[in-house]
Design a protein around this nucleic acid. Structure first.
Lengths: 107, 107
DNA sequence: TTATCATATTAGAAAATTCTAATATGTTTA
DNA sequence: TAAACATATTAGAATTTTCTAATATGATAA
């Protein structure tokens, strides 16, 4: 029963757990963009980016709408940035701590 | 260059993106426990749990120490719960919104 | 020191993810 | 309508993840 929330959480986190997908979120931080702009920014294959966009959309993290021949993507809810920013914070702190240790070692 | 932080973030998130590993964090929320208690609580194979513990430890999320024949695991930094709790929050809100939509549909 | 207990590691099969290349779909323009 | 453009989908190979079963390691107790 509570199993469900662990499973859903794991799926959500899995959708975020790829460098390209994190980059996509970063690119879409403040603006809605068409696929063409996104994969141009990433310098990756169109079909590859399309697949990553789908993962994020399936998870409800992105939404899309058609505008003429283009499909525009945007972040559905800015809350996702709470998560990715927090992760960044934790990692940066970890890196600093490691560095401090190494410096002490150097004495 | 900035690629590195995306890669590190993705690795961190990937370590979290498995139901069993989220359950382990939940079990270790407020206490340090030996492997025997952890896999008993999870009702999973010892070797399987041991492998999941390793993933979390390799990522720096858990730490362990020997106590006699036992190995005790604990969460290294409670910050990780900011992340998993935030995910839970987002998912619960999503579920509620979906439910609201379904109820409106029912009119 | 041998047996036992607790945990980790390894091997290998099955499943899932990721990427590229090719193709399909839907839109606009000529 | 045909050609060109934007995006999605599919197929298939390579890689990674996950699990189970078996074995190894290391600590304690007999």
């Amino acid at each position: 029963m509570n199993d469900i929330i662990f499973k859903l959480s794991a799926s959500y986190l899995k959708a975020l757990s790829h460098p390209t997908r994190l980059k996509i979120l970063d690119i879409l931080k403040d603006e809605e963009l068409c696929v063409c702009k996104i994969f141009e920014a990433l310098e990756l294959e169109q079909s590859n980016v399309s697949q990553h966009l789908r993962v994020l959309k399936d998870q409800g993290i992105l939404v899309s709408r058609r505008e003429g021949a283009n499909i525009m993507y945007r972040v559905k809810d800015k809350d996702v940035f709470n998560i990715v920013n927090k992760v960044k914070e934790i990692l940066i702190r970890q890196l600093n701590e490691t560095q401090d240790l190494l410096e002490k070692e150097g004495d």
